[in-house]
């Protein structure tokens, strides 16, 4: 079963997945803009989310193995998925993935960095698309648009994408500030 939902705040996302599991909807896969669940008997499952991108698959495998050693099973995620969904091997426990506020907030720092890169890249595309349209104009005095429908659609897509990423970045920045208030170990 597919549920359409979006989170930036990973604490709320963890809580959502846990609540769904209690109601018999077991999280299986992240899909764009939502989640895929499978029906089963309701149980309390301890989901925790990390945000990491890896340049190399070997680094990702080492990361997953280290977390597995520490008692975490990867439910969904791959080396460049960003969000990494883990499930505590011991059910009914309240084990956390982060034991201090700064590492907990670090997830949003990495998310933010990635969003800024995406915004920057889409701005370059927007600039290039507009630039190409002006350059190939036969009459330079009149800036008549010679953009094809395809170029127009691409331009619109990139503008919307840049807008979407900017919104996410602003929210992530707020969550980051809220999470990183205290820099002390929680026990």
């Amino acid at each position: 079963m597919v549920k359409i939902k979006m989170f930036i705040d990973m604490d709320k996302e963890e809580q959502y997945l846990t609540d769904m599991a209690i109601n018999g909807m077991i999280f299986k896969r992240k899909i764009p803009g939502g989640y895929y669940f499978e029906k089963a008997e309701g149980e309390k499952l301890n989901y925790r989310i990390d945000y990491r991108l890896f340049h190399q698959k070997a680094d990702f495998q080492e990361y997953v193995l280290f977390l597995a050693d520490a008692g975490w099973t990867l439910v969904d995620g791959h080396y460049n998925s960003g969000n990494q969904y883990f499930l505590s091997k011991e059910k009914m426990c309240d084990e956390k993935l982060f034991s201090d506020y700064s590492s907990k907030a670090g997830r949003y720092e990495r998310y933010l960095r990635n969003a800024i890169i995406s915004i920057f890249v889409s701005l370059i595309y927007i600039f290039l698309l507009s630039f190409v349209a002006i350059q190939i104009s036969p009459d330079s005095k009149k800036l008549t648009s010679v953009m094809s429908t395809l170029q127009y659609s691409l331009l619109v897509i990139f503008i919307l994408y840049a807008f979407y990423e900017s919104t996410c970045a602003v929210i992530a920045r707020n969550v980051y500030k809220r999470t990183n208030i205290k820099k002390m170990i929680t026990r």
Binding site: F66, L67, D69, A70, S99, R187
Partner: peptide, 25 residues
């Protein structure tokens, strides 16, 4: 990695448990 986690718990006499995600970072 995991050996460090266990050792820290031992060294601190169980007072400090570094969670896996924090340890990785």
């Amino acid at each position: 990695g995991y050996a460090i986690m266990q050792k820290v718990e031992l060294l601190s006499e169980g007072k400090v448990r570094i969670a896996a995600g924090t340890m990785y970072g």
